[in-house]
Amino acid sequence: MARTTLGDVAPGVAVLAVLAVAAHVLAGVVPGVSALIVAVALGALVANAVGTPDWASGGVATGSLFLEVGIVLLGASVSLAEIRESGPLVVLLVVLTVGAGVVGVELLARQGFGLRDKMASLLAAGSSICGVSAAAAVAGTIDADGDQLTHVVATVLLFDAVTLLVFPVAGDLLALSGKQFGVWAGLSMFSTGPVAAAGFAHSPVAGRWATVTKLTRNSLLGVVAVGYAARYATDEGTSDTKLRQIWTEFPKFLVGFLVVAAVANTGALSSATLASIDTVADWLFTLAFVGLGFDIQLAKMRDTGLTPVLVVLVHLLGVSALTLVAVTTLF
């Protein structure tokens, strides 16, 4: 078996880097557009227009490594202080929303729309916790197919773009207070960036509550990922092999996520260090998402059709309606 050398992967990594920089530049020009959305779009555009040349394939494949390292560093953004600050009522709403979302999407996808593979779990994680980051983390825990992940990522990013436009308008039409809108957006929308952007588009108070609520929701990523790892590891195992299977299948990068989260919450890291970690994680995710874009093959996505989009749409409408009732009643 031939060893992979730096020379083998460098050209492909350079392609990822060039497109990642382009994604950040374009996102900076177009207000409200996430660099991650642009990164996936650029990768998919190149892959479907010209394909992935052999000399770049090895480096493009390293996108999965960048993704895992980015998830590890994501642990630094989990703040127990912010979770405490949000108050027990918000924490309770977050736990109920995430729990109901995961179970609801699993049942909806499998029983309602006939998705019998791991895509249902990726959709559940992505729409219930923190968007593409959650879908990618769970994909690593359950060894999901790359095509499934890229389709789910494309679906989640589509709704990130739509909700970023729709939620601020809905908040104004419904005459929600800053706190009500912030908690509602934090409970209902998918990815952290669009949630914060939608919140601050409404008001500074809404931006603060949206961000705190969303980060509280993000903190459940480790719990849900571990749960999925245990579930899929034991689906075909006997009682004698369950613990061994769980450890074998358990994604070791999640240990890193938990360690980084623990260290960050000791106060040992300065705000400047945390900001630097966040910047590095952002660039790693951008590189990884360019790589995910290369995996998006439109011909293959047509086979699945609009089913994932319909599943997420039904989930979003249901969760948004229920959480809207909750926040207008309780706050």
Rank of each mutant, 00 (worst) to 15 (best):
A2S: 07
T5H: 07
L6A: 07
V9S: 01
A14C: 07
V18D: 03
V21L: 10
L26T: 05
V33K: 07
V33M: 13
V40C: 05
A41W: 14
A47H: 12
N48L: 13
N48S: 12
G51W: 13
G58E: 05
V60C: 03
G63H: 03
L65M: 14
E68V: 07
G70K: 10
G75I: 01
L80D: 09
V90T: 00
V90Q: 00
V95F: 10
V102A: 15
V103L: 11
G104D: 14
A109R: 12
R110M: 11
F113M: 04
D117W: 08
L122G: 10
I129M: 14
G131I: 03
V132W: 08
A137P: 07
V138T: 04
T141C: 07
T141K: 09
G146D: 06
A154C: 12
A154I: 08
A161C: 02
V166W: 06
L176A: 06
L176S: 08
G178K: 09
V183R: 09
F190G: 01
S191I: 11
G193W: 09
V195L: 08
F200I: 04
P204E: 13
G207F: 00
T213Y: 01
T216M: 11
L221M: 09
A225K: 05
V226N: 06
Y232D: 04
T234A: 13
D235L: 15
E236S: 06
E236R: 05
S239K: 02
P251W: 06
F253P: 03
F257I: 05
A261P: 06
V263R: 12
A264V: 06
A268S: 15
L269G: 04
L269W: 06
S270W: 07
S271Q: 09
A275K: 07
T286M: 01
A288Q: 05
A288R: 07
V290G: 03
G291R: 00
G291A: 13
L292E: 15
F294G: 10
A299E: 15
K300P: 07
P308C: 07
P308T: 02
L310H: 05
V314I: 15
G318W: 07
L324P: 05
A326G: 14
